[in-house]
Computed example of a mutant assay.
Amino acid sequence: MARNSLSLLFVFLAILLASALNEASPVWQRKTIHGPGWRPINNPKDPQVVEIAKFAVTEHNKEASTALAFEAVVKGETQVITGTYWLVIAAKDGSATGSKQYQAVVWDEQSLKFRKLVSFIEISN
Rank of each mutant, 00 (worst) to 15 (best):
K45E: 11
T84D: 04
S95G: 07
A18Y: 13
Q79A: 01
V11D: 14
Q110C: 08
L6M: 15
W107I: 03
I52E: 03
H34T: 13
G35M: 10
N43F: 07
W86R: 02
W107G: 06
K62M: 14
P44M: 05
K100E: 07
S5M: 14
K54Y: 05
P36T: 01
V49K: 09
K92D: 00
R30A: 05
D108L: 15
L16A: 03
Q101E: 12
Q110F: 06
S99G: 05
A72S: 11
A91N: 03
E23W: 02
K75Y: 03
H60K: 11
I81H: 07
K62Q: 13
A24F: 00
R30C: 01
K45I: 10
E63H: 13
A53W: 01
K92M: 06
G35L: 15
T32E: 07
A56H: 14
L9E: 14
R30M: 01
E71W: 04
F12K: 13
Y85T: 02
Y102K: 03
Y102R: 09
D46Q: 11
T82E: 04
L17K: 15
A96E: 07
Q29H: 06
Q48D: 14
G37A: 11
N22W: 04
G98E: 02
V73I: 08
A53I: 07
V50F: 07
H34A: 15
D46S: 13
A24E: 06
I15D: 09
I15S: 10
E23G: 07
P26R: 07
N61H: 15
D108T: 07
L9M: 14
A72P: 05
L13C: 08
V50R: 12
E77M: 06
K54T: 10
F10I: 08
S19M: 03
T97P: 00
V80R: 00
K62A: 10
E77R: 00
E109T: 06
V49L: 08
E59K: 15
G98P: 05
E109D: 11
L21G: 14
R30L: 04
A72T: 02
V50S: 05
D93L: 10
S65C: 01
W28S: 15
F10L: 15
E109N: 13
G83Q: 06
L8I: 01
D108M: 11
S111H: 11
V11N: 06
G76P: 08
L17R: 12
A67Q: 14
F70Q: 05
G94C: 04
P36N: 10
F10C: 10
R39M: 05
F12D: 06
V50Y: 11
W107E: 03
A90K: 11
L68E: 00
I81R: 08
Y102E: 04
F10Y: 09
I15G: 09
E77A: 07
E51R: 11
P40D: 05
P44F: 01
S7K: 15
V74H: 05
I41R: 00
K100F: 05
K100R: 09
K113W: 07
Q79D: 08
R30Q: 03
G76C: 02
A90C: 09
E59A: 12
K31W: 13
I81Q: 11
K62E: 10
E63T: 14
